[in-house]
Structures are given as C-alpha cells and as structure tokens.
C-alpha cells in the first residue's frame, strides 16, 4: 500500500497491467510457441538436433562474428558519435543522416551490395584478391555485414549522452591538470560507458539474429561459413519444424543469458558510479 502512495503519477496498476499484457501478446506468446513446438521432441532427439557438429560450428560462427562486429562498432561508433557531437564541419548533417541508413535499408539489399563490392570481381574485392585476401564468401565477409547493420545502434545511443556532456567539463578537467588521456578515461568514458554498453549489446543482439544481409556474402559452406539462422531455415526446408525450433530455443537461451549478463554489468557499473559520487 505504502508503495502505491509513493507514486506521484496516477495509473500505475493500469499501465503495468497493460505493459504485461502487451509484452505477452507481442513477445512472450510467440516465443513460448517455440518452446511448445520443441517439447514434441524427446531429449535425445533434441540433443541430436542442437548439438550435431554442423550446428555447433554455426553457433561459434554466429556468436563469434556478432561479438567481433559489435566490438568494431563500439569502437568506431563511439568515434563517429564523438566527431558528430564535438565538431562542426560542412556536410555534417549528411553524415549524420547516413548513419541511420543501415537501419532503413532492406537487409537483402545491404547483403547484395556488400557482396558485389567484396566479391573477387568487385571494387574492393579485386584490390584484395591479388594479395590472397578473400572477404566475400568467408567468415570475414560475415563480420563485415554484421558490422554494417550494427553501426547505428552504437552511434545513436552514445550521441545523446555526449551531447549532454558539456565541453566545459573537459575544460575543467584540463584546468585542474589532467592530460588528454586522463580526461578521456576519468571524465568522459565513465559518463558514456553505460550508453556504450547498451549500444554494444543492441548491435550484438541484432547481429545474432541477422539473416538477410549475411546470406549473400557468407558463402554458406557447412562447418565454415554457415550461420545459425541458416541452419534453422535449412531444417524448415526439410519440414523439420521441431528441429528448427529446437535450434531456435538454444539461440534464444544463449542470447538471453548474454543480454542478461550485459544488463547485469550495466547495473553493477551504475551502482559503483553512484557510490563514488
């Protein structure tokens, strides 16, 4: 009861009820369908479906490539956000708008465009080919596609925080004798770390589920460049609905644990910071 009185805004019960209803309808019910479909398998069948060498190789590739892609985005997304907030230069608005493009572009278009460029007869691919570097149709191609689609997440989460962080704080740090590196690590980075982590986890989550843009550039060789979403499609193609959802469930659980871990990290980070203040 006392908790209720503490709420300044009215309508807590109603809005919470609606939130739970809405989440159930949009997220939980479709997801539970995957679990129900999987439960038609015996434990042994489930294990065979989700732990065969081909499927395990695809988990490694999907999560590994997503992690690399998200890490690249964290670094260069931060740099992009920094440039867009701290400096003014001609064409800034255009670059700002360009950042959102991977959001809006149909993923298949992105995949075809990237493949055309990185294939051995494409613009970039033809420059790399003489040096024996193959990008398209290898795991490197997958990382590039996942980096491409994940970029806006980091930029758009970090940008508002950087905008709020006034340049005066940096000047203050400098006037108190901090060098540039110290200003960055002690003043700026702690302030933007939570947003950076959010952007990273969004880019990571997006990359794990990505199908359209990857499928054209991956080459799809079993054990080498086959992503887990393709394994799911392959199983569906064989009318193996239960096997497909079994793999989907494994992906869901791993993704959920990873995202929970990242959220936990964020929670721990914000507690540590608030205690420091």
């Amino acid at each position: 009861m006392s908790k209720k009185h503490n709420n300044v805004l009215p309508g807590f019960n109603l809005s919470l009820g609606f939130t739970i209803f809405y989440l159930s309808l949009i997220v939980l019910i479709p997801l539970s369908a995957a679990f129900i479909k999987t439960s038609t398998l015996s434990l042994h069948e489930f294990w065979v479906a989700v732990a065969s060498p081909r499927v395990v190789a695809s988990y490694k590739l999907t999560f590994g490539a997503s992690l690399i892609g998200a890490s690249i985005n964290a670094l260069f997304g931060l740099l992009t956000a920094w440039v867009l907030t701290r400096y003014t230069f001609p064409g800034k608005r255009i670059i700002d708008a360009l950042v959102d493009l991977p959001f809006a572009l149909p993923t298949a278009v992105a995949g075809i465009a990237l493949t055309a460029i990185y294939a051995p007869n494409g613009w970039i691919g033809s420059l790399l080919a003489p040096h024996g570097i193959k990008v398209a149709f290898t795991p490197i191609g997958i990382v590039i596609a996942l980096t491409f689609i994940g970029l806006p997440f980091v930029v758009r989460t970090v940008q508002p925080i950087l905008e709020d962080l006034e340049a005066e704080t940096e000047e203050a740090a400098a006037s108190l004798g901090a060098n540039r590196w110290q200003t960055f690590t002690k003043i700026i980075f702690p302030a933007i770390a939570p947003a950076l982590l959010t952007g990273f986890s969004l880019a990571f989550a997006r990359a794990i589920g990505e199908y359209g843009s990857v499928i054209f550039i991956a080459g799809n060789m079993p054990m080498v460049s086959e992503i887990t979403p393709l394994i799911i499609i392959t199983k569906l193609e064989q009318y193996d609905y239960a096997g497909a959802t079994a793999v989907a469930v494994v992906m869901l659980v791993i993704s959920f644990i990873l995202l929970l871990g990242i959220n936990g990290l964020q929670w721990w980070n914000s507690r540590r910071n608030s205690r420091a203040i």
């Binding site: 479906a49 065969s52 081909r54 060789m221 079993p222 064989q238």
Partner: peptide, 11 residues
C-alpha cells in the same frame, strides 16, 4: 536429411 550422405561429406 540430417545425418545423410551430404552431411557426412562435410563432417
């Protein structure tokens, strides 16, 4: 099918 000759080639 899963475990068929095509899978064996790659595994």
């Amino acid at each position: 099918a899963d475990g068929g000759t095509f899978d064996e080639i790659y595994q």
